[in-house]
């Protein structure tokens, strides 16, 4: 499929400016291009939180990451498709309620998650490419969880993260990663995404994102 042609088509369809996520071809599970409309409706408006207590003058790496939540909306298809090239990602314009420490982020609210393949939307983590006066040049994520029995389960796979050069953001498909551990999608579990970031200045940073899900 002509990816650029698809993007242009969408641009015409929706009359919005669209940007394209750069694809790291042949790099693990990094998904194909996604078109990202700017200033679209904020699907996560009900989730806006005014908690800004984590902000301070010298932000920690976790704070500087500028984590936002994105929602991928299906437009042209009813069913989930592995190509996902008809999807668009909406980024919440507001800060999702979260706590940040030096290298940890905890989402105060459970992420809505549809375990069915007929899901209407996918959830993304999006974060800045500029971090601590440098630039993230490589990013991967691995998954662990703390079960209801307090067992800590590590999943061996590591996933390459998509880099959207046009928006200067990196995108992690939460849905894609959680689907691989479908049988553990209990709402009692605490999921941990461990981000491994490599900066242009060769600095390596690890940031943990703690979150839980609520099944829709």
């Amino acid at each position: 499929m002509d990816l650029k042609g698809e993007v242009v088509l969408k641009s015409q369809l929706f009359g919005k400016s669209v940007l394209t996520c750069l694809v790291f071809l042949g790099m693990g599970s990094c998904g194909p291009a996604r078109s990202v409309p700017l200033n679209e409706e904020d699907l996560l408006a009900p989730l806006i939180d005014t908690d800004t207590s984590g902000l301070k003058e010298s932000p920690s790496p976790a704070q500087a990451l500028g984590l936002r939540i994105g929602v991928e909306k299906k437009f042209l298809r009813t069913f989930y498709s592995s190509t996902r090239d008809g999807d668009r990602v909406y980024l919440a314009q507001n800060v999702y309620p979260m706590r940040t420490t030096q290298n940890e982020i905890y989402l105060n609210r459970a992420l809505p998650f549809s375990p069915s393949n007929f899901t209407s939307k996918n959830i993304f983590f999006a974060f800045t490419q500029d971090l601590l006066q440098s630039t993230i040049i490589n990013a991967s994520v691995s998954h662990a969880l703390i079960s209801g029995s307090n067992q800590k389960i590590y999943f061996p796979d590591s996933y390459i993260i998509c880099h959207d050069l046009n928006q200067n953001i990196w995108l992690v498909s939460v849905t894609d990663i959680l689907k691989k551990s479908f049988y553990l999608l209990s709402e009692v579990n605490t999921h941990i995404f461990l981000l491994n970031l490599t900066l242009a200045n060769s600095l390596k940073i690890e940031i943990k994102i703690y979150f839980r899900i609520v099944k829709e």
Binding site: D51, S53, G54, K56, R99, T100, T101, E104, Y106, I146, G148, S149, N150, V188, T190, I192, Y210
Partner: peptide
Amino acid sequence: SWDETGGVFHRK
């Protein structure tokens, strides 16, 4: 996890 507002216990 602890921040300026308090803490979150991830263990149940």
